[in-house]
């Protein structure tokens, strides 16, 4: 056991606490995708497709893989949710964040 490993374990534990209390910080790419999804959702539709978010000016220049990784991460974090009742895959910004 070293002092550094104890400090590292403490930081990991408190990072998990940060996530659990909702203070998780997004990467710049995730933030751009989230803002793009929020902006497109604001246009008054029930959920948006990945292609619609993808064409937003904030994310249009991102590499395809980077974009999808960020989208997946936002879904895992619960900031975006899959919209129910559609044949194609559509996404909505979590209801308490979209108002």
């Amino acid at each position: 056991m070293t002092k550094l490993s104890a400090l590292f374990a403490l930081r990991c534990m408190l990072r998990e606490m940060e996530r659990d209390v909702g203070l998780q910080d997004l990467s710049p790419t995730e933030l751009d995708v989230f803002l793009a999804a929020h902006s497109v959702s604001d246009q008054g539709r029930d959920g948006v497709t990945s292609a619609e978010i993808r064409h937003h000016e904030l994310v249009i220049d991102l590499a395809q893989a980077t974009y999808h990784r960020a989208l997946r991460s936002l879904l895992e974090l619960g900031l975006l949710e899959r919209a129910d009742g559609f044949k194609t895959r559509r996404y909505v910004v979590r209801s308490d964040l979209s108002s």
Binding site: M1, A9, L10, C12, L14, E16, M17, D20
Partner: peptide, 13 residues
């Protein structure tokens, strides 16, 4: 305890 099998967890703490 730190360094043992149980993963450190803030809730456990």
């Amino acid at each position: 305890y730190f360094g043992n099998a149980q993963k450190p967890s803030w809730k456990g703490m």
